[in-house]
Nucleic acid binder design. Structure first.
Lengths: 248, 248
DNA sequence: TTCAACTAAATTGTCTACAATTTGAGTATT
DNA sequence: AATACTCAAATTGTAGACAATTTAGTTGAA
């Protein structure tokens, strides 16, 4: 429950003897890492663009030391690529990478879903259903805002992964892959998704989790992601054909 | 084939006009990252021990700036954990983490093996058989040196992952997980492994790859790793029981 | 015009010094 | 003896300056 990343700012007023004070005191490097990551996955910093250290250090009001540490973390999150003596660039989106990411995601979320089926309590399943209900409500009410639908979709996956009980798996998916998915989604958010079908699939997945049927949960989640993969790939291929030799 | 990490040192004498000179010029931070990583996975720096920046910077003859960048990369590789204002510690080994890692490994290598079955050429399969032949020779000749047997085992997995064609998957497994496996192996290298059985399993896996049977290749690899997992977990549990309340 | 060589500007990589925080020893107090 | 407090030492976090390399613009020659 509390294995969510702690990005909070400082917090001082703590009694000297406060028995346990797990207050998140973040260093500037970590704080700037979060900010840049957000800027990247929100499209504020364009994919493929150069990371300029003097500019960013001025922008965030820190020196280049902690900024470079933040960039190293971004490298670890696969959001930038560093070339020695040249610098860092935001990762460039292409269909090949998307395929690779979705192949990995399929395997890992299948695993997560199977584990969730083994571990989930009745309470957990209630929570899942509640999330889906909210999700459904969004589909009905604001069916234009596909962006939020996709956010809701990620929430569902997020919850299942956390129910897997495998913290490393959680970090791998939620701290790395999902941010990359957000980046890809920026490219395709204007295009039709498939909310009704996804919604049905989600319920079937929760069915399997409720039954404790790990094998089926694994299978259904893999299929679910394979569908999403097919949709994304097709959209990427289309937009590739649209802007032929435009950028760079 | 050439997607292996390039950790080479400098190399100067290049003609000014050398058309393409993809020589790996490494920065000090990257070089020290490699050295510390090697020191960690070889046990030179003990699991759980503190990373002392002044000491290490003196030891490697660099200042703390690039050293801290190296430490950030180690954090990304999950080899150290950083706590703000306290510092970095080498990751501590425990059974729970081992289980998590092997669950992930099972899913990812199953995927890799399935993909390899789809992509591998006849030549690739020949290479795999040759590797197994060398491997078998090692089992016969130096059956005491289990460490090298396990190195050979990793070589096999390494090759299969590279045959998957998924470079992100390759990086994930070979740049992250395999180093952690080496770390765990240090704890169990004195104990019996199961070379004959593993050897058979390897050949069955290559059979499936030769047949282009992705589903079977996936399944067999998962089973293979599940066996290794069971063995490792059992060994870790045993050594946990041996030193009860000894360290920290 | 095109291409190569050269130079100046900009950017990255590194070092040193300093501030902020934690750690640990020592002292005093109950 | 055990605990809380104080202060010095050590360590981490950050800033600023300099060196090394790349980038871009200019000049000169084919």
């Amino acid at each position: 429950m509390s294995n969510i990343v702690d990005n909070t700012d400082d917090l001082e007023a703590v009694a000297p003897n406060a028995d346990i004070a797990p207050i998140a005191v973040s260093t500037r490097a970590d704080s700037v890492f979060d900010q840049i990551r957000t800027a990247i996955v929100s499209g504020e910093i364009a994919p493929g663009s150069k990371i300029n250290e003097p500019q960013l250090s001025k922008q965030f009001g820190i020196s280049r030391g902690p900024l470079r540490e933040a960039i190293r973390r971004l490298e670890g999150a696969k959001l930038v690529e560093i070339r020695p003596n040249v610098g860092a660039r935001v990762i460039a989106l292409d269909t090949r990478k998307a395929i690779e990411i979705y192949e990995i995601r399929e395997a890992l979320e299948g695993l997560a879903c199977g584990l969730a089926a083994q571990h989930a309590t009745a309470e957990d399943c209630t929570q899942l259903r509640a999330l889906l209900a909210r999700h459904e409500h969004q589909i009905d009410s604001e069916d234009g805002k596909r962006y939020y639908q996709k956010e809701g979709d990620l929430d569902f996956h997020y919850l299942i992964v956390s129910l897997s009980g495998n913290t490393r798996l959680f970090n791998l998916l939620c701290d790395e892959l999902y941010h990359l998915l957000r980046l890809y989604r920026l490219q395709t958010s204007s295009r039709p998704s498939r909310p009704q079908q996804a919604f049905k699939e989600h319920h079937r997945i929760v069915d399997a989790i409720e039954d404790g049927d790990a094998e089926l949960a694994d299978l259904l989640m893999r299929r679910h992601i394979a569908s999403a993969k097919a949709t994304l790939i097709q959209q990427l291929r289309e937009s590739e054909n649209e802007n032929l030799g435009a950028n760079r």
